[in-house]
Structures are given as C-alpha cells and as structure tokens.
C-alpha cells in the first residue's frame, strides 16, 4: 500500500514534481520563497508522517545552526556591524540574517528529501528506468532482492561462527575487525557462488533476448495528466520569474528587495502553489472519500 495518495500518482509525475522543486527552490535565497518552501514541506511531511515527526524536528536544528554559524563566522560582508570577533573580523547584521535564511532553507531541503524518499520508492525508480536502462534496472532489482537476504545470511554466519568464539562481537577490537572481515568474506564468496545459479535462472527465463519490455504496474491516468499540467504551469511561472529576476532580494551590502510588481506576484504564487500542491492533493483525495462516506 502506498503511504499517501500523492505517492499513488504515476512515478513520472512524482519525479517531475521533485525535479521542478529542485530547479526552482534550490536557486533562490529570497526569504519569501524559503518560507513557502519550508511551510509547504513541513505541512506535507506532517500530513504523511503524522504527529510523531514533531519529536524529530529538533534534530533539524543541527544542520540549521551549522549553516548559520558557518556563514556568520566566514562571511564578513554587510555594512551594519554589530560587533567584532576575537580575530578582529566584524560580525554584521546582514551576515546574520543570511545565515538564518540559509539555516531555514537547509531545513526545507532536508524535509523535502525526507518526503521524497517516503513517496518515491525504488519500485518507482525502476519503473522509470526500466525501458531506458534495462541492464542497470536489472542490477537494481537484483540488489534489492539480495539486500534482505544478505542481512539474514550475515546474522546466520555470525551466530554460526560465534560458537567458535569468532563472532563479530567476540574478542578485542582487532579480533572483532578480523572476525567481521571473515564473516564478510564468507558472505561474499558464498553469494557470488550462488549468483551463478541466479544468472542461470535469468537465462532460462529468456533474459538477454533482444526487445525486452519492462512491465509497468503504474498506469498513467487522467489525474496524473492533470497534476503534471498543474505542476508545469506553476513551475514555469516560478522559473520564468527566477530567470528574468522579477522578485529580487539581496543581502549584501545591505538588505534590498525589489518593489512588488505583477511579475513578482506571479512568480511567488507559482512557487507557493508548487510547494503546496502535494498537500492540496492529499486534502482533495481525503475530502472525496469523506464525501462518499457521508453519502452512504
């Protein structure tokens, strides 16, 4: 089962969404954009991850503080001097504000990444690459099949060798390292040995014949088309604004922002809608169901 309705969209739609987000969100430091991106990401993450995520939120402080700190320490541009470091370099208000913005934008990026991995499973990746890169996709499929098997085998070998006092947690640090290496070497040789049978099994079922197809369980439906259209519209508006510099914001030497014009409104609206698109879609699907349920 998919984790949310947005994840139920066609992989191409999901991939396109995150690519658009990367192309627009990653190249601006406009505080407005950062705020939109952060709230959009946070709302969507809470929607699909539940309230439990709030407890993890303080972890975001670490990268945020690093981003802010690095900027304040190594960047001394800006005209409003607040004080001086022991090294003699100035601490400026502009650098402080830029640091805060950088910190928040890193938070947004991390939350979007979390959402991406939640929504875009390896299955979806393979459905996109299956046709273009069949051999590589076969490698990925096989790897995904082997990973849990190897973790299980690793434990088996470990407990078998533990009986001779050669498990991964026996002896001092050096011996442990040696034992780990031995376990690993057994795992690898045995699995490579078995992989010959895997290859036979692939060959016997016709792998390597020309004109291989890739079975795609994901069907492209009308709602995927609609969503892609919306994404492209919003994304295009935001990109156009970004490239032509409609809403400009500068931190150095002193804070400056261009006057709000029609273009800036279009750009910001496009980007904001793009950020909130998954959340809207989630709510729409939930409402649909609730409406249906109330009719029953």
């Amino acid at each position: 089962m998919e984790s949310c309705s947005f994840a139920g969209l066609h992989p191409a739609a999901i991939a396109l969404y995150f690519i658009l987000l990367l192309c627009t969100g990653a190249f601006t430091m406009h505080p407005c954009f950062i705020a939109l991106s952060l709230t959009g990401a946070a709302c969507f993450a809470l929607r699909i991850g539940g309230r439990g995520l709030v407890r993890k939120a303080p972890l975001l402080l670490i990268p945020a503080l690093i981003a802010a700190g690095v900027n304040v320490l190594f960047n001394h541009r800006g005209v409003t001097v607040l004080g001086h470091f022991p090294t003699g370099n100035p601490l400026t208000l502009e650098a402080l504000i830029y640091g805060a913005a950088a910190g928040l934008s890193v938070c947004a990026v991390i939350i979007w990444c979390w959402c991406f991995y939640k929504v875009f499973s390896a299955d979806k990746l393979m459905s996109l690459t299956g046709r273009l890169l069949p051999s590589l996709t076969a490698v990925i499929t096989l790897t995904l099949r082997f990973i849990p098997l190897f973790v299980r085998r690793f434990r088996e070998i470990n407990s078998a060798r533990h009986q001779f006092g050669r498990g991964a947690s026996d002896g001092n640090l050096l011996q442990r390292l040696r034992n780990l290496a031995a376990i690993f070497s057994i795992l690898l040789t045995r699995s490579l040995e078995d992989s010959v049978h895997t290859a036979d099994s692939m060959k016997s079922r016709g792998f390597g014949l020309p004109h291989r197809t890739s079975y795609d369980r994901f069907r492209f439906r009308r709602r995927d088309a609609v969503m892609i259209l919306l994404m492209l519209c919003f994304g295009a508006a935001a990109l156009w604004g970004l490239i032509s510099g409609q809403a400009e914001f500068r931190y150095y030497p002193r804070l400056y922002h261009s006057d709000p014009c029609f273009g800036a409104v279009v750009e910001t609206a496009g980007f904001g809608l793009l950020c909130f698109l998954p959340l809207f879609y989630e709510i729409k699907e939930a409402l649909k169901w609730r409406l249906q349920a109330s009719r029953l």
């Binding site: 490698v139 099949r145 082997f146 990973i147 992989s195």
Partner: peptide, 11 residues
Amino acid sequence: EIAAVAVLTAA
C-alpha cells in the same frame, strides 16, 4: 555479470 555486480552492491 549483472548478478555479480548485484551481489557486490547488495553486500
């Protein structure tokens, strides 16, 4: 070859 690459990656 595909199976061997997959084994190494998975390991």
